[in-house]
Design a protein around this nucleic acid. Sequence first.
DNA 1: CTGTTAGCGCATTCAG
DNA 2: CTGAATGCGCTAACAG
Lengths: 380, 380
Amino acid sequence: MTGRKGIFIMTIKEIAQLAGVSSAAVSRYLNGGYVSEEKKEQIRKVIEKTGYQPSAQARILRTKKACLVGVVVPKINSESISRVTAGIEQVLSKRGYQMLLASTDNDPEKEITYLKLFENYPVDGIILIGTVISAEHRKFLKNSKVPVVVVGQYTKYANCIYHDDYGAGKAMGRLVASGLKKEQPAADAAVQTVQDAKTPEEGGYRTKAAYIGVTKEDKAVGVSREDGFRSGLKSEGILLEPDYVKTAEFTMDSGYHAALELLEEKKDIRIISCATDTIAAGAIEAILAYSRQNVPRSAADSGTRMQYILNYSGIRVTGFGDNQFLKAVTGGIPTVHFGYKTSGIRGAELLLDVIERGEKIPIEMKLGFRLEEPQTAEEK
Amino acid sequence: MTGRKGIFIMTIKEIAQLAGVSSAAVSRYLNGGYVSEEKKEQIRKVIEKTGYQPSAQARILRTKKACLVGVVVPKINSESISRVTAGIEQVLSKRGYQMLLASTDNDPEKEITYLKLFENYPVDGIILIGTVISAEHRKFLKNSKVPVVVVGQYTKYANCIYHDDYGAGKAMGRLVASGLKKEQPAADAAVQTVQDAKTPEEGGYRTKAAYIGVTKEDKAVGVSREDGFRSGLKSEGILLEPDYVKTAEFTMDSGYHAALELLEEKKDIRIISCATDTIAAGAIEAILAYSRQNVPRSAADSGTRMQYILNYSGIRVTGFGDNQFLKAVTGGIPTVHFGYKTSGIRGAELLLDVIERGEKIPIEMKLGFRLEEPQTAEEK
DNA sequence: CTGTTAGCGCATTCAG
DNA sequence: CTGAATGCGCTAACAG
């Protein structure tokens, strides 16, 4: 039994004593100050032998510098969020910082809790990947002891980086509208299919657009994105009817239920646009489940069956976020690519500018998007 | 300009001064000690007015108690990991603790870095969701100043909770083998299709099993799971040939490339088993892409085209992890459900036992699994 | 180059 | 009940 020395917490003082020097000398040794070669050697030996590690804790209390930033995220299991954090991590590590994450499970109250945690724990700055900006949020942003930048939502109370959700929604609305109109006159094979595939209980073609959004409290995703979408549809002369709109949580499961409701209530839905790709995945699942009854038995394996359903049920799904997982296993749905990683990068840079250079000028940054239309087998 | 008081960091001393009491009184007020109602009121007012928040930082330096645990995870964007952290969070919050995450992006060195970070920052304990347990890992576990529990890997150097990867692999191997054997005799329609659809360049049936694993450095997923799988196949008299085995990273993309290689090199693969559902998603993508590529474009002659498609979609994929996203959009593939959330719960409980009750008896815990076979359209 | 001396912000004795 | 004093482990002055 030789190990287990580390479990006795050593202090710089003890090391100094063992090495026969002052604690200041050890501190300097640790931080690259002036120490004679001789003493350096003594200290090195003692540290080696004891496995001593200085308490970052205490150091930070003194220096007020942790080289650490805290990131508050709504959830952990999300491609878009992981893209943001990847961007953050990239610039942070390049500049000698580390990153700690706190996940709030989409609970705005927990968000506040963790923001306060970070405010009083040793981090030099905070990045909030925002969902809802409540009054309490604003209060925090206004009074925070440490610099904060908000990613994903607009706010005037902190440096922020957000996406053009309205524009993205509008582009998607246009795309959906044009698809709807193009297929109406039954000009190509695809439409033929759609018509052929009408289910017995419905007597007509599928022509309507439906939308599954999220809480309006989320200004970016819940409001801007949806408003944009409506506006895009409208610009092409199509209206999004209230009965064709549902609200879901940011989960697949919730998307599934919302879509199922739509399918059961309305028989003429041609396309279901979803506020996120995750919700869209749930919608796909719902369509799969709902139309299982109409799918020929012979198409037994999932790949084929899905193809069958996507092609023949005639109900399409669109999303936002350009989820790669979804793209991979379904071949892709129309979606919007946001510069999530970029927003992470910019966000971290902004934060470090404030931390290191005391940058005082408030900055708002809006990032663009790219519409993603999957290529069909034909186009390929 | 009335706000922005918070940005001046207040100390307990200043509060005391403003309230006309001693700092000790304020401290007691904050921590529920004896304070007269009168002074309580004065202190309350001052704190309210100043927005004072005690520095957790300094408090912890004194008390050596943070009510915080650090969790080191290999990546952020993973359903299985998020299930583990959900379990951890559940028991932690119930017992008054908070959770901080550090993501290592599957880099074992970063893992060490973050473990050390947590060791010296104010956390009461650490949970490591393990991938590779290197010599350095062992050294850390042996000498850590704060208690650590490892989830997902077996180790004798710390309390650990792991899954029956070998058993799961074996069960999957058996399932795959029996599927292979059942279909060999072309007893049902599905197989019929497969046979009929053989492509020109191959002359025979698809009969072989392939496997996409991960690095052997990951004992749980890379070794046990794969060994179990082989053993399961073997118990049914089927051999996993070396040429039919690839190694991938823990990403969809990597799974895609590995699967593509397999498809290009071997024309008689009937099933691709993957070490994780994420890799499986990549494999599905590969099959989709490969078949699309190899389906003659001109073949609007849907007869031939359909044959090709069915042939390639006749290649099945299995995984491990029971990814809900994958299940939703594909209808499900054969996979294994591990008790990830349970392991998180148990892990947190174990850790808190050590933290709070100084529990000294080392514990190893092995959790079982459940084979998940998707119901086919027929069964429905 | 070096050791001594002050604190960082707080919680905890210990006398009142 | 209360305040003054002490120190958590470390670094930053400051005099040697």
